[in-house]
């Protein structure tokens, strides 16, 4: 298993970091990799990767290419590629992804839909 630093390190060229003690409210659309360690409310979209840290609290519908979740999420999550749910994650909402891994201890309350990987790749190319 990867530790937290390795996972964050995998997000090369991070564009946006929402740090601890910072609260963002509204509609956030990004193109780069995003790390959330604080609070977010609204909707969150990026064409790249999204990392939700274990101390983060997110109340939002989210869309991204790859997602790793370690914190509290209330909302639906749509992922074109891989969704990684770590042991500290607490998710209340539906998830949709092409591939999925859930660590022991994670909490997931919602529907889970698996999409084909090819579909996800085509969407990215478009």
């Amino acid at each position: 298993m990867f530790n937290k630093e390795e996972r964050v390190g995998n997000l090369r060229e991070v564009e946006t970091i929402i740090g601890p003690s910072v609260k963002v409210k509204g509609e956030f659309n990004g193109n780069g990799n995003i790390i959330v360690e604080g609070m977010f409310e609204g909707s969150l979209k990026t064409t790249n990767s999204l990392y939700i840290g274990d101390k983060a609290s997110v109340t939002a519908n989210m869309e991204a290419k790859e997602v790793t979740i370690g914190g509290v999420v209330i909302g639906n999550i749509k992922v074109q590629g891989h969704l990684e749910i770590t042991s500290t994650a607490k998710i209340s909402g539906d998830i949709e992804s092409a591939s999925l891994s859930i660590a022991k201890g994670a909490f997931l309350n919602g529907k889970c839909v698996m999409t084909k990987q090819a579909e996800g790749s085509q969407k990215i190319i478009k």
């Binding site: 003690s21 910072v22 609260k23 963002v24 409210k25 509204g26 509609e27 956030f28 659309n29 609204g42």
Partner: peptide
Amino acid sequence: EIDQNYSIEANV
């Protein structure tokens, strides 16, 4: 406030 889309606040 960023373009009326979202706002940012620091709690500490």
